[in-house]
Design a binder for these strands. Structure first.
Length: 571
RNA sequence: UGGGCGGUCGCCAAGUUGGUAAGGCACCGGACUUUGGAUCCGGCAUUCGAAGGUUCGAAUCCUUCCCGCCCAGCCA
């Protein structure tokens, strides 16, 4: 009854919507579930949430919002050996941060343990479940293989009374872990291995992070999940593709136990990203073995990591909406994520000037001690963001990359004899350089054209480039952390260990960057565009005396592309 | 090899009575620009995993084949 052949429905299709929204639209048209749409996001509290979860969260909460329904937050905490309250706290924080609200509908599978237990008793009474006293190894051996049917357990035909008694004693703690297990009695010859008498309850004499020592038997996912969904009167139980084979079991549970509603499971393809690992096990390994600095390391694909890096939640939501929804295993280009981040930040982030690798620029025809306040636009994309003053003086810091003693073709920046515009300032002409004993350029000398400040008659004079700067005497020293992809290859899991693919240059800490005074005291979490460089966010490590910035993402860099292709052409 | 899914542009993804391939990202041009940013305009699948077949006409129907992913936890 859960098998629906789209072709045999008379209901109209709604082209353009993804298959899940089409299906819900159809269900609504058919008057199913009293017209309700109720979803749930069911994380297991055994790790931190990552972008893949964001896709599911945006889907489940999004659906509820779009169809006037509700979405519950439910912790699937049926395996106490892996779960912890640290994780439930982080999950709540992350879902909230992403922008979703579950109101008072915060549920736990563990809250249903008694009911789930009663469902098991119901199955036993109906002769649909039995206590198997075989060992795990024996059960595995009797399960058969992908091509051979399994064989019935010698305990399969125990009487209802004996099963009831054994199950009660399992619950009472009379047996050791693994001594007995409650199994559904379905079909050991089913081509679907999930139906070969799957486990329903196992003995685990361990503390549960919520129920403490109240239980020593815990339900398995398939059983607990179906029942939890039905108890919460979920209408559409959305999960990932690997559970497709479990749907017959999900339906079996719902159909054979007395429950208040009949949810339907729908599966979609989970998110994969290039240059990223997404499995909880691998992320845990990165954290546990200190390949990164914790779950919230800005290089991690965790929501905590992205939050710390400065990714706006709106960008993540936009990303999840753009990538679409289907059943095809797909790997999205990280560039797609970066696009959503830039798109959001371009509209919202105030612009500011910062110099990452400072090189002194001295304006020879600017009198010592003279300081001029330049007007700078805070956000050209948003006039309401206003303007600010930026101090300009005789000695400035410019970016080392913006000066080349021997400039390549199409280098629109400073070079001996060349002119360049100082953003919001004057046009300057390079008159020479000062070198140290090693021959490195340690200072660039120039003269400014006093008639070229913004608003002045010659301000519109055409010059090839504009560079950013910061006043040497006014700038504030800052630490800037530049992040690159954590892995070297598109698919880090492809061959060998993903650890071998770690990018050794994924973090570059610059200790002596200089930022304009206006951002020195910005609050942790605030985001800026450092003009011509990228988007940056204040890290919580920042101290009043020394700001710390994380690079969220670079700006699109056409010059880098040109330089790269020129280089390629030369070699 | 048994079962379940899937295969439309470099990456996603529409395509739903068979009527002659949306859109986004990326990429390539060009305009504009005091961010080599943004914006704007233009280009980018004679082809839908392959081969046959049905049809006036097929990504959509039929047949066969190929490839990919998932399942043999007392994990979720």
């Amino acid at each position: 009854m859960s098998d629906r052949d789209p072709a045999d429905s008379a209901a109209p299709r709604t082209p353009g919507l993804d298959f899940i929204r089409q299906r819900i639209t159809q269900d609504l048209a058919e008057g199913k579930n009293e017209g309700r749409v109720h979803t749930r996001f069911p994380p297991e509290p055994n790790g931190y949430l990552h972008v893949g979860h964001a896709k599911s969260i945006c889907l489940n909460f999004g659906l509820a919002g779009e169809f006037g329904g509700l979405c519950n937050l439910r912790f699937d905490d049926t395996n106490p050996v892996k779960e912890d309250t640290e994780y439930v706290e982080s999950i709540k924080r992350d879902v909230r941060w992403l922008g979703f609200d579950w109101a008072d509908r915060e549920y736990y599978a563990s809250d249903y343990f008694e009911k789930i237990h009663d469902c098991a008793v119901e199955l036993i009474r109906k002769g649909l479940a039995y206590v198997d006293s075989s060992s795990a190894e024996e059960i595995r051996a009797m399960r058969g293989t992908l091509t051979e049917p399994g064989t019935n357990s010698p305990y399969r035909e125990r009487s209802v009374e004996e099963n009831l008694d054994l199950f009660a004693r399992m619950r009472a703690g009379e047996f050791a872990d693994g001594a007995h297990i409650l199994r559904a009695k379905i079909d050991m010859a089913s081509p679907n291995i999930n139906l070969r008498d799957p486990a329903l309850f196992r003995i685990r004499k361990v503390e549960h992070h919520r129920t403490g020592s109240a239980w020593c038997i815990y339900p398995m996912y398939d059983f607990a999940h179906a029942i939890s969904d039905a108890l919460e009167r979920i209408t559409h139980s959305i999960c990932t593709l690997e559970f497709e084979d479990h749907r017959p079991l999900y339906d079996w549970c719902i159909d054979n136990v007395t429950l208040p509603s009949r949810p339907e499971q729908i599966e979609f393809a989970r998110l994969n990203l290039t240059y990223t690992v997404m499995s909880k096990r691998k992320l845990l390994e990165l954290v546990r073995d200190k390949h990164v600095n914790g779950w919230d390391d800005p290089r991690m694909p965790t929501l905590a990591g992205m939050r710390r890096r400065g990714v706006p939640p709106a960008a993540l939501r936009d990303f999840c909406q753009r990538i679409g929804l289907a059943k095809k295993n797909a790997t999205i280009d990280v560039g797609q994520l970066e696009f959503s981040i830039r798109d959001e930040l371009n509209r919202t982030a105030p612009r500011v000037m910062a110099v990452l690798r400072p090189l002194k620029l001295v304006i020879e025809n600017w009198e010592e001690g003279r300081v001029e306040e330049m007007d700078a636009v805070n956000n050209p994309e948003d006039p309401s963001a206003g303007t600010r003053k930026v101090p300009f003086a005789r000695e400035l810091w410019i970016e080392q990359d913006d000066f080349r003693e021997d400039p390549p073709k199409k280098f629109f920046r400073l070079a001996p004899g060349a002119e360049v515009r100082l953003r919001y300032g004057y046009i300057v002409k390079c008159t020479g350089v000062v070198k140290n004993d090693a021959g490195d350029v340690v200072e660039v000398r120039c003269t400014h054209d006093p008639n070229t400040k913004s608003g002045m008659p010659d301000a519109n004079r055409k010059v090839k480039g504009t560079i950013h700067w910061v006043s040497a005497q006014h700038a504030v020293q800052a630490e800037v952390r530049l992040y690159d992809r954590l892995f070297k290859s598109e698919n880090p899991e492809e061959a060998g260990s993903f650890l071998d693919d770690l990018n050794p240059d994924s973090l570059d800490v610059i200790g002596d960057a200089r930022v304009e005074p206006s951002v020195a005291a910005a609050e942790a979490g605030s985001r800026f565009q450092f003009e011509r460089l990228g988007y940056f966010a204040v890290d919580p490590d920042a101290a009043p005396t020394k700001p710390v910035f994380n690079r969220v993402v670079t700006l699109r860099d056409t010059w880098a592309k040109i330089a790269q292709s020129e280089q390629a052409a030369r070699s």
